[in-house]
Design a protein around this nucleic acid. Structure first.
Lengths: 265, 265
DNA sequence: GTTAACGTTTTACGGCGTAATGCGTTAGGA
DNA sequence: TCCTAACGCATTACGCCGTAAAACGTTAAC
């Protein structure tokens, strides 16, 4: 059995996140032993979220995946929202925490950004977990710490460094979100991205024939220099565009950071 | 009655978005006249989303607000997801479409960014509408067109301009999302942002006493130079931080764009 | 052997989106 | 003028959701 020294939701949540068994007294007590573990539940939920998307993650479905009823999970986890927090922090655990700084901070940050980006594309549901109220789990701390360290010795005052860390994190999340959302357009395996896009554009053309006259600037900018698709690259249009926007945007941001460094020194 | 020249979901959606009454044949037909309008419904839904948040917007609640059953709305709108698209595009209509470029592109973009940002804070639910699959409504086109025009004459090739438009849009959305999410932490009017933050930190401190040794870089960067709160400014901590990150990040981005301009010329 | 704590399941409640059904209103043609 | 068919709208129903409450069976401690 588990007893919480102080009390309160927050304490219990933190104990769960940090597996702080030191703070928790384990008491032997009657009744059957627990047959599952928080980790098992969290991993099953992540599996489900990866393959079927966040909406498919319900207490009942996670329970079923473990051969249990939905309610059984409530012995391990106080509520679904806590389970989601645990999923979030657990997933963050797979991010690298060390980067080679001998090649310069800029290259290191590019590597970090690509890893972070790829992480969100592997686990798109993470983007649906709020980023504003931090979860304060160990892996969240570790991942922020990793990025902070990349910017540690380049002569930025702490405050500026903090802003830039926030901006970079936000930037990668937003860029990844564009792709992640485009991948789950009409539910599971409905029409593909390109088919949807084509049908929409055709309908638009028909309903608004004078589109090009009404919005000349967008039309010009959107039509010029479309990213060419490689021979055997079947990445959908929106996704290629979003990827290119990510890379270009990262360059712009890094250039801006260099300016900030120059101004600080 | 309404007949669609071609057919298909997309056509109907576009007609709804663009109010393309030209494409639509109005036929007189028996039965009672419609007592509501799409606009009324969309505005009621927006009202609800503004005041109670997106989760409070259900077909039943919107119907109730109009003195009608939930199912009544289905005569006007094919499904909830279409209603959400209409809400999104309708709300975008309140954005300015003209900016003074005589003060230079940079100042104009700053003004745009602040308007866009304030818009998201007025209608935080907009951030929960996917941005990847564009809705292709008139106001979405207008708002993108507005930003594109701000960057039109500064010597950027079209492709670069497109990437920068995407990056700026993404940036503001992400920055606004941080605040919007921090405002809706524990449901409606539960604990305030600051109380929550304090309780969490206290719990964390207790569960993980060696935090500062384990993540020295984050701790240092997070603790230095905290934004001072004005005398009578009761903006919560997370929100002040997020606002500062937005402003600093915008500067960094604009500096990066200036570098891009220099390189293009 | 009794008791009390515990893990788990079952049932139940009020929410959701929306399909199906039915009712009452209304315009056009007879 | 009446009939009919189309239509707006409400009601009901289905299968989901999170989770409170209760019931049941297992088990350790006394």
């Amino acid at each position: 059995m588990v007893v919480y020294a102080g009390q309160g939701e927050n304490k219990r949540t933190m104990a769960l996140l940090w597996r702080a068994h030191g703070v928790i007294e384990e008491k032997v007590s009657p009744g059957p032993k627990q047959q599952l573990s928080v980790d098992e539940i969290v991993e099953a939920a992540i599996e489900l979220a990866d393959s079927e998307g966040m909406p498919a993650v319900s207490m009942r479905t996670v329970g079923k995946l473990l051969g249990r009823s939905g309610m059984a999970l409530y012995t391990y986890v106080p509520s679904k929202s806590e389970l989601v927090d645990l999923m979030y922090d657990h997933a963050l655990g797979e991010l690298p925490t060390e980067y080679d700084l001998s090649v310069g901070w800029r290259q290191a940050v590019v590597a970090w950004a690509h890893d972070y980006w790829a992480f969100f594309l592997r686990h798109p549901w993470v983007l649906q977990v709020s980023s504003a109220r931090p979860v304060l789990g160990p892996n969240e701390f570790a991942s922020v710490d990793t990025l902070v360290r990349l910017l540690d010795g380049i002569g930025l005052p702490a405050l500026r460094q903090r802003r830039i860390v926030g901006t970079l994190t936000n930037f990668v999340r937003g860029a990844a979100r564009m792709i992640a959302e485009s991948r789950q357009a009409p539910g599971a395996t409905g029409v593909s991205d390109d088919e949807w896009w084509y049908a929409r554009s055709a309908a638009l053309q028909e309903v608004v024939p004078d589109l090009a006259e009404r919005f000349p600037s967008v039309i010009r900018v959107e039509s010029e220099g479309a990213t060419p698709s490689d021979e055997d690259d079947d990445t959908p249009y929106l996704e290629r565009e979003a990827t290119a926007t990510f890379k270009a945007g990262l360059t712009v941001l890094l250039d801006g950071i260099e300016t900030a460094i120059t101004q600080s020194s």
